[in-house]
Amino acid sequence: MVDQNLSVPKYWRKIPQYYRLTAVKCRKCGRVYFPPRAVCECGSREFDEYELPRRGKLIEYTVLRSVTSDFEKQRPLAFGIADLGGVRVFGQLVDCPNPDKLGEGAEVEVVFRRVKEDSDYGIIYYGFKLRPVKGCW
């Protein structure tokens, strides 16, 4: 048996969020939540799906050098928080060898990337990442 260390259902059910940043928008007050929530701050439980825009501004970032076992061969990992149409999203920051060269509020685009994989035989997890449009090298 090939040992499966990464769960398939745990990934599969979040595909709308991982692939397309599918948030929820409250039908009553219009608040947008990513990740989705069951109850809005206004008390409403009725939401519509809402895809976040794929362009936004970088708020802050860091470069993690001490990574977890799943990411050993991908280190270092840069992470950023981006404002996508007023919603703050956390994600990996890619294609940016020198993020310290980025200006404040640098423009980022949402890209589709591999996140991690279960050895050479198991599932590949895909998901969104953040990529500075220009300026980090």
């Binding site: 692939y19 794929r54 061969k73 991908q74 890619v94 294609d95 890209v111 589709f112 990337r113 591999r114 996140v115 590949i124 895909y126 990442k129």
Partner: peptide, 16 residues
């Protein structure tokens, strides 16, 4: 391609 890019990820980018 970067370490996290493969024919799937590039297909998504081009198709979008």
């Amino acid at each position: 391609g970067y370490i996290d890019e493969d024919p799937v990820t590039m297909a998504v980018e081009a198709s979008r």
